[in-house]
């Protein structure tokens, strides 16, 4: 009987962790679509996506807290509990960053000239790819699969891609005829979006160490 309860609890926790990963993946996708709509000038669609990202962020927080509570309360995975909680917390920061970027777009309503739109889209594409790879690496890590390493390489690749695009974008912006205040505002947005890929890379770096520790 105790065994059955143990395994049903485990299954539930497994499902919650999977859902958390889903929410992160969905969150960056909704973020991407939202910013795409903003750049297209479709503000009502942007608003809808902003709501969606907020909801996903809240659910992500909820799941993270619930997993955290259960891991401590039921003293599960004592050896790797701290590692797993750190991973979830840092991954959750990605959702927070997406949400806060969306709010900044909504509040500041930055004007983005057409010449920068394509690079903005490329930057967001690279960020989404890096987070996607991270989510896959996380799932592989939880399953004890060696594929985690392959996905981590992808995270690093897309993060550096995001850096390249953001540097290019900022160079172009500061070389343009825009007002200095406008340039500064746009730089702030570029850095904020690029920061999401940086966070993904940080998590991947930690994950690499935890994966080594997990090998029995």
């Amino acid at each position: 009987m105790a065994g059955i309860t143990l395994f049903s609890k485990t299954k539930e926790l497994e499902a919650q962790t999977n859902e958390f990963c889903d929410k992160v993946a969905e969150g960056v996708l909704a973020f991407k679509l939202g910013v795409n709509r903003y750049l297209d000038g479709d503000f009502s669609a942007f608003d809808e996506k902003k709501q969606q990202v907020s909801a996903l962020e809240s659910r992500g927080d909820e799941l993270r807290r619930e997993i955290q509570r259960r891991l401590y309360l039921e003293t599960l995975i004592p050896e790797s509990r701290a590692d797993v909680l750190e991973l979830l917390e840092n991954t959750d920061k990605i959702l927070n960053a997406c949400e806060s970027a969306m709010w900044q777009f909504a509040i500041e309503k930055p004007v983005i000239a057409n010449e920068f739109v394509s690079d903005f889209n490329s930057l967001i594409e690279a960020v989404v790819e890096s987070v996607d790879a991270l989510v896959m690496a996380l799932r592989a890590f939880f399953r004890g699969s060696e594929a985690a390493t392959d996905h981590m390489h992808k995270v690093i690749f897309y993060e550096s891609e995001a850096d390249t695009v953001s540097h290019r974008l900022m160079t172009a912006m500061f070389a343009s005829d825009l007002e200095l205040g406008h340039k500064n505002q746009l730089r702030h947005f570029v850095l904020h979006i690029d920061q999401i890929a940086d966070t993904a890379e940080d998590v991947a770096d930690h994950l690499a160490i935890f994966a080594l520790k997990r090998a029995i």
Binding site: T10, T17, I77, F142, G144, I216
Partner: peptide
């Protein structure tokens, strides 16, 4: 066996406890 079975980290934990 553990590599082959690829248990989820929680399930591996539960199996290890048992």
């Amino acid at each position: 066996l553990v590599r082959w079975a690829r248990f989820h980290i929680y399930r591996l934990d539960a199996y290890t406890r048992l």
